[in-house]
Each structure stands twice: as structure tokens, then as C-alpha cells.
Design a protein around this nucleic acid. Structure first.
Lengths: 151, 151
DNA sequence: CCCTTGGTTGACGTTTACGTAAAGGTAAGG
DNA sequence: CCTTACCTTTACGTAAACGTCAACCAAGGG
């Protein structure tokens, strides 16, 4: 079966060549240290050219998921588990069942998170509008240098 | 003006009484330590009865937002800034402008997060379906104790 | 040959978000 | 009076996720 992952339908996923740690760091706005840390934690496993790390397209795809996971507030351990879901590859039936159950747990967690985000967005937009209205009622449409207050 | 916050339209926001730290901890599934920590960090400021903390309805509402912020992966510092948005109360025009700009930054961040969540959900659901189909093709609809494999 | 650029491995430091004792105050109940 | 339950402060401990040296190798340019 081989479930494919990430970077689909983004349009420009060409440029399939291998990267050095520096290039990857540059591209993702991370430090070398951070990327090596992800390797220490088992989230990445680049090949080596001598002792130099070589990051394949697959490593890069994983890094995309790692960064997204981070933005969503997941711990590296959780992200690792998440990544392991995908590279299960062709596996035993039981392993696939297990992976599926993990995936479903993740889905449920993300659905809750979706609710949280939407709720917070709703409140913040309401807040924004309240302020805008307040400011409009009190004049001062744009930041003005001097304005007499009706005291 | 006074922007109201949280627990609106939840239906049952009655039970307006004050709570002890123990009750709050119980209700939110937190430890005493955690709640006091939030106070140390300036996220809560309960009144005191003697030296015992007394949590008002407002404190409880803030705690709702704190927990949600945590689920969304925000740091306590960020959540504090967020809370300060709301209790600006009646403020100077300039302060309100500032609060509004902060709110809008938050909104943008949350919109990005929303994209992340939706993208991840999409991928996970796709993954889930792929596994389901794979399992269906290979029989074993339910976890079976014994089944001969067509080798 | 030396220097710069870019890679490497330790290994200790730091921040965040609490956990976990230690030691004690207070009010209710037996 | 003693215990129990619930609260308090002070303070050190810890796990996660890196930051920050230090010391090193290697390839290429001047």
C-alpha cells in the first residue's frame, strides 16, 4: 500500500535534490542544532556522506510535518509517534490496525483543537469589532496628532 | 464599553459562587500547584479570605481561557498577553488601538493554525481511509482470532 | 600554507511549566 | 486534645527543547 505523505498538491514540490543541514536550516528557519536535535530524538534519520548528513526528499517532507506539529503545540514525542504512523509502510495487519487507532485518536484531538481555535477566533473577532465600534463612536478614525476631547 | 469575555452562550453559566482552589482544581482537572503557578505568573489574581485564595466568577472565566490557550499550544506568557487584551476595560484610545492590533495579530496566528489543523486533519482522514480500504481488501473486517492467510 | 566556510561531536547552560517534598496554619468532628 | 482535611509558603527538582560554547575535521581559494 505505502501511504504517501505531505507536500501533495502544493504545486511546486519539484526540486527533489538532497540538501545539507545548512540548506535545510535556511529553508525552514531552524538552526543546525535544532535539526540535529530532531535526529537525536529519532524524528529524522538522514543518510551520511562520510560523516556529513545528507537530507533526502523524504527527510524534508518529514520536517514539514514536524514544523506543523510544532505550530500545533505537539511535543516532539507526539510528533514522532505521528510520523511513525506514516512510515509504517507495508505492515502487519495488527500494526495497521494499531496505526489506524492512533490516527483516529489524533483526529479526535485535532477536532477538539479545531473547536478551540474557532471559538477563540470568534471571540477575538467579536472583540475586534467591539473596539472598532467604540473607536468609531468616539471619532478618531485614524491616529490623529491632536484632537480636542469633549470633556 | 467593557468587553465581556468567555462563557457566553454556553447555556448554563449559572452557579456564580466563589470557589476554593480545591474546587477549581477539581473542576478543571488541574493541581493546586498549577493554579498557584498561574497566579505566580500573573495569569490569575484571586482575592483572599485571610490567607486563603478565593476565586471569583471572573477568575474562573480566565481559567477557561488559560486552559484553552494551553490546548492551543500557547505559552503562559502569550496567554497572559492574551488575557490582558480583555481586561483592558475602559481604557485610553491609544491603549485600545494597541490592544486591537495585538488581537489582530492573534487572529492571524490562529487563522494560520486553523489552516494547519485542517490540513493535518485532511491528511489523517485520508490516511485512515487508505488503511480501511487496505484492510477491507485483505478481508479481516473485525479483529479475528484465527484466519488462514492466502500465502 | 593558511584561512575561510561549513560540517562534526560532546557537554554544559537555559527557559518553561510545573512536580514534589518540607513545614506549618486553621477549622470541623470525634 | 487529637486527627483529618484543606489551605498556606518556601524551595529545590525535573523534563522538554533547544542555545551556546569548545574543539575538531575537510575542502577549496588566494
Amino acid at each position: 500500500m505505502q501511504a504517501t505523505i505531505g507536500t501533495g498538491a502544493t504545486g511546486w514540490e519539484a526540486d527533489d535534490r538532497n540538501r545539507s543541514i545548512g540548506e535545510l536550516a535556511e529553508e525552514f528557519g531552524l538552526t543546525h542544532r535544532t535539526i540535529r536535535h530532531y535526529e537525536d530524538e529519532g524524528l529524522l534519520s538522514p543518510t551520511r556522506d562520510g560523516q556529513t548528513r545528507v537530507y533526502s526528499h523524504r527527510d524534508r517532507a518529514r520536517l514539514v510535518l514536524i514544523c506543523r506539529g510544532k505550530r500545533l503545540g505537539f511535543s516532539l514525542a507526539e510528533i514522532k509517534e505521528f510520523l511513525n504512523l506514516y512510515d509504517t509502510g507495508d505492515a502487519q495487519i495488527e500494526q495497521m490496525r494499531y496505526a489506524q487507532s492512533l490516527a483516529r485518536q489524533r483526529i479526535e484531538a485535532l477536532e477538539r483543537q479545531l473547536q478551540d481555535v474557532q471559538q477563540t477566533l470568534k471571540e477575538l473577532r467579536h472583540f475586534d469589532i467591539q473596539i472598532s465600534e467604540h473607536l468609531r463612536r468616539n471619532g478618531t478614525t485614524e491616529t490623529q496628532p491632536m484632537e480636542e476631547k469633549l470633556s
